[in-house]
Design a protein around this nucleic acid. Structure first.
Lengths: 224, 224
DNA sequence: ACACGATACCGTATGATGTACGACATGGCC
DNA sequence: GGCCATGTCGTACATCATACGGTATCGTGT
């Protein structure tokens, strides 16, 4: 058996980190295989021994970025646990603005997200939901989180403002009156949490004891 | 003044319709300027007398697709009106699967969406919300709708199923148990409505008469 | 009737991209 | 020392959006 060869000069982790850094700095649209290879000091085609394709690279980036979500500690009432979990996902996704957009072509099955699903489903069932309800609730929370992370921030606030100001106030009186509040900026995370709390509040109606309250870690059981 | 010229052989409307048709048939990734021009029987560059760029074409497609939303009739309790409005948006967006994804790079300021914003804000304020609350509620509903439309359906259900089945049941017992329910297929619209109703139900707590109910057109006032 | 010139159409060219192909280098094993 | 699997990467190619400039068309002014 002749199975040894020259040592690998990179790791997938290094590639993922460099790709995330580059994407954050210059935008995902500027993240080309050539640019990334240059950044790493290797030839373009070398990257293809680590990732199958550019899509695979984006997968790897999502995996790396969402990985810390799985480690988020949760405690308190189940509603609080849910808010904490999805806030962690939201935070991680908004930290790399272009990533969600670039990757949205495919469903998100990254390990980090799957771990999140596992924990969220566990919490929801422990809170008293049956399978059908828990799955539906999870998907709703998940889609809301992705929607906020994807569309919540405006890449070009000035452009949005110009667009809104261009609308005739006579035809759009309410939009004109709300203009400033429709431009979502620093309040992004706060507004996300507002919606999240609305959802879990409404979902509380689906669990057996409608006004149940025990103020510390009542219903959580670990995953295993 | 010599300002006449050969008649235009196309209209923006024809281009938008052909582009939507092509995108629906072959996927947005196959919607190239060449392919669209061939479909319309003109040279590639001719398209550039009607649209500034490919991005502009996508804008035009979104505008065309979302235009009918503005005409959706709404009636009944304000919660019903809100559900109807955003369901119309959701329906129109999911009718052209790849479009939302392709266009999500920029914020959605299409006329149809702005008309929707106008009507939704009107309904929310008429229901008793103040400006701050109405704007926040609108944005939440809007982001939820976009999230569902963007990520709700899975382009490749078989692939998702394979991914889910590949997960070790020991590490992901809840995901494994919920597997079928996590694959969102025909129930997409129903699940969206479930989330929408959760949101408006929870929002009801923010309007003055908490259990107000008048069963026909109580609080809606027209836009103008 | 006829020339003018503004405008629409489109053939061609350019530069960027992802990636296939195959040459070359490396280093452990016979 | 020769062998060959493996990792690296220069080059080449197909495909894309789109800039440029030539050509065709037609209402207008004479």
């Amino acid at each position: 058996m002749y199975d040894m060869a020259p040592p690998r000069v990179l790791t997938r982790e290094q590639i993922a980190e460099a790709a995330l850094r580059l994407a954050d700095q210059t935008g995902v649209e500027r993240l080309t295989m050539r640019a990334l290879a240059d950044e790493l000091g290797v030839g373009t085609m070398t990257l293809y021994s680590y990732v199958r394709s550019r899509d695979d690279l984006l997968d790897l980036m999502v995996d790396t970025a969402t990985e810390p979500v799985a480690a988020t500690p949760i405690e308190g009432h189940w509603t609080e646990q849910i808010v904490t979990l999805f806030s962690a996902l939201h935070e991680v996704l908004t930290k790399h603005p272009g990533l969600v957009r670039a990757r949205m072509t495919r469903p998100f099955n990254s390990p980090g997200v799957m771990r999140l699903a596992e924990r969220a489903l566990s919490v929801l069932q422990a809170a008293g939901m049956d399978r059908q309800e828990a799955a539906r609730a999870y998907r709703t929370l998940y889609l809301f989180t992705l929607g906020c992370a994807t569309y919540g921030g405006h890449s070009d606030t000035a452009q949005l403002r110009r667009d809104l100001e261009a609308l005739p106030s006579t035809d759009f009186p309410h939009v004109a009156a709300h203009r400033d509040k429709l431009i979502y900026t620093v309040a992004e995370a706060a507004e996300f949490r507002y919606g999240l709390r609305l959802l879990v509040t409404a979902m509380s109606a689906y669990v057996p004891p409608p006004t149940n309250r025990n103020p510390q870690g009542g219903t959580h059981n670990p995953v295993g």
